[in-house]
Design a protein around this nucleic acid. Structure first.
Lengths: 110, 110
DNA sequence: CCAGCTATTCAGCGTTACTATGTAGTGGTA
DNA sequence: TACCACTACATAGTAACGCTGAATAGCTGG
């Protein structure tokens, strides 16, 4: 979706992935596919894996290696307590931002 | 509002400032004050000025120097046609993102 | 054996917001 | 005069993040 989306995703992509993991555990390749299904069509695989490394280092997820029927072993990520806490904060921040932007959008429409 | 906001602002702060300018022309110091009023309490002046330089270089605004009664001359920025076009794109991208995030937020709440 | 799908990793890059500091004009006040 | 506060703009250096592009590796079917 272009460069605007790239910049706008900064900071939110992390929340998006954590939100996906909050529904149920998943592995990288699966998360990438899920993102594409949800309309984020040009998010590169490399981006997702790098993000997963970061959230693992921050301690937001637990990781388990699980053999795959169709290829190399998968690294399954599941959201832990710290991750859920961070996700809550994320939604708070997001709501704050969204509220103000919606106000601006209406104002600009006048 | 912390580091999450910092990252989330990337890409959106530009849109926010353009939206402010779409209502009426303004100068840097004024824009900073307006942002603070709207709840973006810890956006530094330096951030805004740097952003104004960028949007000027991109050709989204016209600039006029206007003397001030209370200090150095002001650089008044007004949104031009290119800026309005970009702002429209911005809202499109924003809506796309917001829609998907709201969906995720609901899903996570189940 | 090779093509194609699954699955992960990483180095290098561009963009952005933040930090910290500096410059300059004006008015008030001690 | 000297000092301070407010107004107003500018900029060098830094950290964080997503993208690009490429590489590696396991498994299956023709």
């Amino acid at each position: 979706m272009g460069k605007q989306m790239t910049e706008m995703l900064k900071g939110t992509l992390e929340g998006i992935v954590l939100a996906i993991l909050s529904v149920r555990p998943a592995y990288g390749y699966e998360i990438t596919a899920r993102l594409r299904d949800q309309g984020f069509s040009d998010i590169a695989e490399g981006t997702v894996y790098a993000l997963l490394v970061r959230i693992e280092q921050k301690g937001f997820v637990d990781v388990e290696k699980v053999p795959s029927e169709k290829g190399p072993p998968r690294k399954v990520y599941s959201l832990n307590a710290a991750g859920r806490g961070f996700l809550e904060e994320f939604w708070t921040t997001w709501s704050f931002l969204a509220e103000r932007l919606e106000r601006l959008q209406v104002e600009g429409g006048k």
